[in-house]
């Protein structure tokens, strides 16, 4: 009985304490927030900083759904999807923005390779979506005309 009680006290002191800590501090994604990639001033530099190595290959299997004309550059809706297998990440770059990398999405197994979001565009420019599939990079690029830029105000 004494031993059991002691074990319990010990478990509470170590494991229990850890458990409490885990509940308070969120566990972040396996891919860390990459400062150099978000700081890069140009799309290709941002892609290299984010993924290292080669640039993506243009692929018709990467679908980038974006408006032809965005009246309000502050809120431009985008949907990126693909039929490529084993997608690990999806990322979005806005060429003429001060920092082109807008977002990198991590797609765990079991999550569909289709993500929607809204981005800011300072001016008419190209939007590039990059898909990491089976360790390789594929992309699609589309020009979006912006009537009123979304970075001022």
């Amino acid at each position: 009985m004494t031993i059991k009680r002691r074990t319990l006290v010990k478990a509470l002191a170590t494991g229990g304490g850890l458990l409490g800590l885990c509940a308070l501090v969120p566990q972040w994604a396996m891919a860390a927030w990459m400062r150099e990639a978000f700081a890069a001033g140009e799309t290709n530099a941002a892609i290299k900083a984010l993924y290292g190595g080669d640039l993506p290959v243009e692929s018709a299997e990467v679908m980038l759904d974006a408006p032809d004309i965005a009246e309000n550059g502050a809120v431009v809706p985008l949907t990126i999807s693909t039929t490529l297998p084993n997608v690990e990440t999806v990322s979005v770059f806005i060429a003429e923005n001060p920092s082109p990398l807008a977002a990198q999405f991590i797609i765990p197994e079991g999550t569909l390779a289709e993500v929607s979001t809204r981005v800011r565009m300072g001016q008419t420019t190209h939007v590039t979506a990059v898909i990491q599939s089976d360790g390789k990079l594929y992309s699609a690029t589309k020009e979006v005309k912006v009537t009123i830029g979304g970075c001022g105000g």
Binding site: A74, A103, Q104, F105, I106, V115, S116, T117, R118, R120
Partner: peptide
């Protein structure tokens, strides 16, 4: 883990995201 995102300031104010798992 079903979804994660690393974001920069090019994402719009009051961000919106959608995904399925």
């Amino acid at each position: 883990l079903v979804f994660a995102a690393n974001l920069g300031p090019s994402v719009s104010k009051n961000p919106f995201f959608s995904f399925s798992f």
